[in-house]
Design a protein around this nucleic acid. Structure first.
Lengths: 244, 244
DNA sequence: CCTCTCGATGAATCCATCT
DNA sequence: AAGATGGATTCATCGAGAG
């Protein structure tokens, strides 16, 4: 079962019932990239994150033009609303890159979540860098709403997940996550529980949640990606209904 | 060729010539002090550091703001001295865990280094955690003294390194790093250059540097570990003299 | 259906050259 | 002078197509 809202994350979340979801798993716009504040706030997400020799024609996405301070403030507001709508014991998993990891950890904790750790996503396909280290990883900050109740969901999840972005026809979004990675992450939500993603993008989090027998509530601002996510989610949900 | 000083990092560094090293690779003693009461009270850990070092007086829980703040301030001073004694274009690699990553990145940048990225050290043997994600990684923050000059050291280094801590007789220190991991990291220093480690511990950074044909300057406060490191370094250096 | 070869690619990064 | 634009770089991995 799933719902997908089209609109701004803060507005939609403020209309949701308190204590109604069991996990928040999301990939906010990083507001990263570029060397100067000017580059970060004026360039498009495509311009910042897509290699200059890339052939694909994927659409840009909105919301990637905040400076560092505003990013932290805004993300704190969003994660605060997420805490309000989540049940005690719920988990939050928030993607970030190395540049924004400190700010993201500030926002997570300022919003009231307890920081529990950091999962590493390793991307085997990454452009090498002369004279230094390849940037081949992203980070998933793990927080909890109060204590972690191990008995309620006795899983043992990996601290490092590996996977490449979908390629070719299966790729819908610049920053799309591999389904296999997301299927591992959604297991932090107890079976039958509800996963919330306030920045749904092309909807991979929801597809993974449905595939692992969790419910899903998503929010996406861009009408373009909302339509893509809606189609993917409906397809997954109907396939699930037939399966058993 | 190597030198190993016994004394406090700040004191020894302040006596060193400016612009005399090509890379700083170190694991500051917050991690090395032991994170659990058990680690801190075992016979091998006792006496590792004396009380003159402010970092040893940290409380059990990093959430204590005062100790956290002092740690960041002290690390900023040390990394600032490291910047002074390093040449333009030199790299800094600083180990940290997920809890201290934001503070360590603050200290690195406050000291004047340009933050360039984050390398992940994956420990394949890690204790699983019920109801959550295994903590199987540590982090190595990468900074540079000014621009990265790719032509001077045209290497392509990995963003993820993997290796388990030495066990049994080969293990001299609680937080000892695998030699194979350190051999990859020291390649950020141009061949023939000098690697500095102000918290040398059992000297693995130096052993790796010598094995990869870099020179080494180390500092270790504890007489116990200074003696162990001195023996390991001399052994490696004489083996190197014979080899060619 | 499996194996092999071939070609394309990356939430990059740097730098010279234009506005 | 500061920002915008465009080109060059590199290799482990992955998809497609051939055999």
């Amino acid at each position: 079962m799933h719902q997908l809202h089209q609109g701004d994350a803060l507005s939609v979340l403020s209309g949701m019932d308190p204590a109604s979801v069991d996990a928040v798993i999301t990939d906010p716009p990083y507001n990263s990239g570029g060397r100067t504040t000017g580059e970060r706030t004026t360039a498009t997400a495509r311009g910042k994150y897509v290699s200059s020799d890339a052939a694909h024609q994927l659409a840009d996405f909105p919301g990637d033009n905040r400076d560092q301070r505003s990013y932290t403030y805004w993300l704190t507001l969003v994660l605060g609303e997420c805490l309000r709508v989540s049940r005690v014991g719920a988990a939050a998993l928030v993607f970030t890159d190395w540049r924004q990891l400190p700010s993201t950890s500030d926002a997570l904790q300022a919003a009231g979540w307890t920081w529990r750790g950091c999962v590493v996503w390793h991307k085997p396909v990454a452009r090498p860098r002369r004279g230094g280290f390849t940037q081949a990883t992203e980070y998933i900050l793990w927080g909890s709403n109060g204590p972690v109740v191990g008995d309620r969901n006795p899983v043992y999840l990996p601290g490092l997940v590996s996977g490449s972005q979908p390629r070719g026809r299966g790729r819908n979004h610049i920053t799309q996550k591999p389904l296999e990675v997301m299927r591992q992450l959604v297991q932090i939500c107890p079976p039958g529980g509800t996963v919330l993603d306030p920045f749904a993008g092309a909807g991979t989090t929801g597809v993974a949640a449905l595939a692992e027998d969790r419910d899903f509530v998503g929010v996406e601002l861009s009408p373009h990606y909302h339509a893509i996510a809606a189609a993917r989610l409906s397809e997954t949900d109907s396939a699930r209904d037939v399966a058993p």
